[in-house]
Design a protein around this nucleic acid. Structure first.
Lengths: 133, 133
DNA sequence: CAGGATCCCAACTGATACTG
DNA sequence: CAGTATCAGTTGGGATCCTG
């Protein structure tokens, strides 16, 4: 019999509670990588949820061409972003949040606002811990 | 002047929108690592939000002693988990969600439920993409 | 029991150069 | 402009052994 806790399904077994193969993990792993959240955030505030490659690159301080390519490619692979290719010269490519990608934003909001309210505390905790408790 | 979008502060500059040094990132990175969500989830359903080291280890399939130690140590460092040490023989150590750690759970819920509703689609998108669009 | 210490490999990330 | 290719450095994670 399957139960739910905070959005996560799990089963009560004789060995104790077992979470089903970590579905959220693969998503959180993507969001947790170095640039994904920044790309999503920029698309979220862009007109039409849409920006071209060079606009994203300019908007994100420090990202290299290679890492931006990898990041948007992974988002496209997940279906969170749609890639629009215009074979002009020079070529133009635009990235747009998909319907699913846009639907993630409100869901993400509660969590990111919790982070906004708590990250200073977390940073302070880390400093204290590193200073030797 | 600072604006907010989906819980994230950003500034409108002449170079376009700039997100302030990615505060959510360090938190998402922690949550996105391999074992953290599983540890948090097990504590979330434990009586008193509290489990001992060996209980966590038994509950999480495949985790090694080393990785569990690193994971709970990082959570302790962030202040999301409190470590209770009982110098008995043999020693007993219990990990408990802190107030802040517990306060994260409802915030996380909206996001994890979005993931629950969408991860099959994401997995399918990945398969299709990998099969050559 | 709950770890610390080592060693090792794989994956992620960055820098640079090249191209349709 | 928007990539791809290559190489190198760093980090994350696992396996194994040892200890208060």
């Amino acid at each position: 019999m399957s139960k739910f806790i905070y959005g996560r399904p799990y089963q009560v077994t004789t060995k104790g509670p077992q979470f089903t193969p970590c579905a959220p993990h693969s998503v959180l792993t993507r969001l947790g990588d170095k640039w994904t959240i920044l790309v999503m955030s920029h698309l979220a505030i862009a007109p039409g949820f849409r920006l071209r490659f060079s606009e994203l690159k300019r908007g994100i301080e420090g990202i290299t061409q290679r890492m931006l390519t990898l990041t948007v490619r992974n988002l496209e692979r997940d279906g969170l972003v749609v890639r629009h290719y215009y074979p002009e010269v020079p070529p133009r490519v635009e990235y747009e949040l998909s319907t699913m990608g846009a639907s993630m934003l409100p869901a993400l909001e509660g969590f990111t606002s919790w982070i906004s309210n708590n990250w200073q505390q977390i940073e302070e905790n880390r400093r204290n811990f590193d200073a030797g408790d």
